[in-house]
Design a protein around this nucleic acid. Structure first.
Lengths: 263, 263
DNA sequence: AAGTGGTCTAGACCACTTT
DNA sequence: AAGTGGTCTAGACCACTTC
């Protein structure tokens, strides 16, 4: 009874038998705590526990899944390391949310050369539906020509226009997103996506280049034609590594820089 | 005896009493595993265990420090997460080293737009001693005018010159570093620093900008004057967050990009 | 067979927060 | 006082590597 050997006696027990394979095949068992992690992940993904909310305590989850608290703990440790949940001693474990100062800077790496990072004014230039261009469709893993929502905006810091950005979002997910809602909404865009459309960005991949400003962009950023700009192309992913945003930004870097820490 | 309460009965016991304060002050105890981590860190920093070498097993360290294996384990878990050691099941725990394919890409983020990352030809243009310019001195935390070693090089991928880099290293640490040794040495430069000078880079911070190529750089990279280039200014740190390298690179990004994953 | 890291358990106590 | 996450222990067994 007190024997461990989870992989021989336990895998059938914990809830929805994660890691079950067709009979006759080699099951390739994963550690118990990974299975528990997957189960918690499903509850996060399904919206059973929403961003900002408290999830059940470690003891309760241990009882629910019929494992020890230590095993639940290890599962949550990893989720916490991946910024999917946040632990607070004495209070509990909360689903991570973009409505927090802490979460902002994970996805905005442009910092002023001197002084504290300040929040941006957001100027929406354009919001429209269109058919996904081939390259965007490929990145969003949808069919070329599928409906996407296109957004173009300029962000200013201290009154100086600094970022021109174009975004493409899958129309199927962001149905009903309009310029009005974007303009009205106070706070980070990912916060709006999370609460209004139930889609939480959890990871992003960026490709960075130096390019010359074209005339249109130069006008928007108030710089000379051909000024060097930082080109940042981002694909953002939600649960299950599903791509749900393509973003192409052009950054002025004369008084700001893209900060990156290698560790 | 089986009682835990480390902070009341244990803190004096484990070896060199980390976290000990003058009597009468409030000691501000840290968790036991953090103290163990500090002790292991000291052994790494002092060179007691050298890069690539096997460190004592968890059981042995637990005996040495008079704590449980689980506590040593948690300490090593963190060191492993920080890439200071590498665990290998069945074999042991090894001190991390730059002489590994795995470690290379942590500090070189420029990737080809298509195809596999290839290794670079290294063309050393210049190696000399000079007095640290004010800005470099500030970044290296040395006095302005102190001796530094200056290196300028061009790196090519597939025969195409792609990166022009200037490096400044504290003369006190890298005494005896010559152009010959740099040219002769096969493998990553951080590997040479690690084995020949006992200085291991463990972390770096980069500031990225878009700039226009000056005439000299344009010539070296075989691009037109004023071509937009990625400017990457890096400060690298060794143990104890001590800065030991300043590096300023200019990257062509017409067929490569700087890859960054936000997570 | 022996040694290493990896997983799991059960129970104790600590630090912090709320009631 | 009660509940939560955080630390620590002791012991068991598993997976992998080497002898």
């Amino acid at each position: 009874m007190s024997s461990a050997t989870s992989n021989t006696i336990n895998p059938g027990a914990p809830a929805t038998g994660a890691g079950v394979a067709a009979p006759g095949t080699s099951p390739t068992f994963s550690p118990l705590y990974q299975q528990i992690k997957s189960l918690i992940l499903q509850s996060l993904q399904s919206g059973e526990w929403k961003p900002g909310e408290l999830i059940p305590s470690e003891v309760e989850l241990a009882n629910r899944f019929k494992v020890s608290q230590g095993t639940v703990r290890k599962a949550i440790d990893e989720l916490s390391a991946e910024n999917l949940v946040m632990r607070r001693q004495g209070k509990g474990t909360f689903v991570a949310t973009h409505h927090e100062a802490r979460a902002q800077f994970r996805f905005l790496r442009l910092m002023p050369d001197a002084g504290e990072p300040h929040s941006a004014d957001n100027n929406i230039l354009e919001v429209k539906r269109l058919r996904a261009p081939a390259e965007v469709a490929r990145q969003l893993d949808i069919k070329s020509g599928d409906s996407v929502i296109f957004i173009k905006r300029v962000q200013s810091f201290d009154g100086a226009p600094t970022i021109v950005e174009e975004l493409w979002l899958p129309g199927a997910i962001f149905k009903g997103l309009t310029a009005e809602r974007l303009v009205e909404y106070k706070g980070p865009m990912y916060g709006l996506f999370e609460t209004e459309f139930g889609t939480r960005m959890i990871r992003a991949s960026e490709r960075i280049r130096a390019v010359a400003a074209d005339e249109s962009t130069a006008g928007l950023l108030n710089v000379a034609h051909n000024t060097p700009l930082l080109s940042v192309e981002r694909v953002s992913y939600t649960y299950g590594d599903k791509p749900v945003e393509v973003r192409r930004g052009l950054y002025r870097t004369d008084s700001h820089h893209y900060q990156n820490d290698l560790s």
